[in-house]
Amino acid sequence: MDVLDAIAVLAAGIAAGAINAIVGSGSLITFPTLLALGYPPVVANVSNNLGLVTGNVSGAYGYRRELRDQRGRVLKLGVASFIGAVTGGLLLLSLPPEAFAVIVPGLIMIALVLVVVQPRLQGWMRARRDGNGRHRPDGSALLWIGVLGSGVYGGYFGAAQGIVLIAMLGIALDDDLQRLNGLKNAMASVVNGTAALLFILMWLLGRTEISWWAVLMIAMGSTIGGLLGAKLARRIPANLLRAVIVLVGLAAIVQLLSG
């Protein structure tokens, strides 16, 4: 990696870290950048995942105020994210890259529809909870299964994982969008961190390749971007944040279909 390549990857990492903290889909910046520089798809995917771990952690740290009283949710849903990430990482190392290519754009589109209709669905669910007297602050078993599924997807590729998570959390949990965005960042950190440990283990066993220079540049950039993105996202009104989520999601679909 020469100086210009390093600068390009660093800049992509900053942008990806900020986008991940605000919405998700930061991989749709760093992953294509690595491909454009000539890295093989699996090497680019694995290196990208490793590099974005610190950015996800810094984004979650930036939301520490919103996460302070959500430990129960983090622990419960974190288990689902962990199991899903291990499964997705193993799939990445054993299945052809085309395995998820057909369903990923559809998955993102469904998530965007859920984001748009979230207020109405949330009101309907709140009315049902008020009517039957039941309230589950940590979500139902369906949410746990959904987070598990998003963990599988995140461990395999991860682009737009944040959009899928925020859509599910926003519908299943009766809470402020900013608090849910912090929870989303925490779950994304679990997924990326777990997958990263798996990839490092596989690298030590000679089962995969990693570009450590790419990892370093993305990690440096995404850490800066994650902190900046968390500060910016907290100041964005809920409706505007929802609009940003939709726009980034549509861009993700276009990029995936064109790729």
Rank of each mutant, 00 (worst) to 15 (best):
G162R: 14
V164G: 06
S140R: 06
P119D: 04
R134T: 13
L107Y: 03
L180P: 07
S150A: 11
I218M: 10
P119E: 04
L143A: 05
G158H: 13
M109N: 04
W144R: 12
R207H: 09
E209F: 06
L173Q: 06
A160H: 04
R120H: 11
I110F: 13
G158I: 12
W212M: 06
G146S: 14
G155M: 01
H135F: 15
L204F: 14
A167S: 11
G133P: 00
M187H: 09
D138P: 03
V104D: 04
A214G: 06
G206E: 05
G154H: 11
G151P: 08
V115G: 00
V190L: 10
G133T: 00
Y156N: 04
P137L: 11
L197I: 13
L143V: 09
L205V: 10
L142Y: 14
V117F: 03
R126G: 11
R136W: 11
I110G: 05
D176A: 08
M109A: 15
G106M: 07
L107T: 09
G155K: 00
N181W: 11
G155D: 02
V113T: 06
V190C: 03
G154Q: 10
S189M: 07
N181I: 12
G146M: 11
T194Y: 03
F199C: 07
I218K: 06
R136P: 01
R126P: 07
K184L: 02
N181C: 07
Q178Y: 03
A159W: 11
W203V: 09
R179A: 08
M202F: 13
G170R: 02
W203D: 03
A188F: 06
L183I: 10
A111P: 06
R128Q: 15
V115A: 01
V164K: 07
L165I: 12
V102G: 05
L183T: 12
L121H: 10
A195R: 00
W144S: 13
L201V: 14
R120I: 11
G158N: 12
I166C: 01
I218P: 06
L183F: 05
A188P: 05
G151K: 13
D176P: 07
V191M: 15
V191D: 08
L114V: 13
A214L: 00
A188C: 10
L112F: 02
L148V: 04
Q122H: 09
P137G: 15
S140H: 04
L112S: 02
A127W: 10
L121G: 05
G139L: 04
V116K: 08
S150C: 15
L143S: 02
G133R: 00
G106F: 05
R179E: 14
A219P: 07
R136Q: 11
R126Y: 11
S140Y: 02
G123K: 15
I163L: 15
A214C: 01
I210R: 05
T208S: 08
S189I: 13
A219H: 07
I110P: 01
G106P: 01
I166W: 00
W213H: 10
G193R: 03
L121N: 09
Q122Y: 04
I200D: 04
G123V: 10
D176S: 05
G154I: 13
N181D: 03
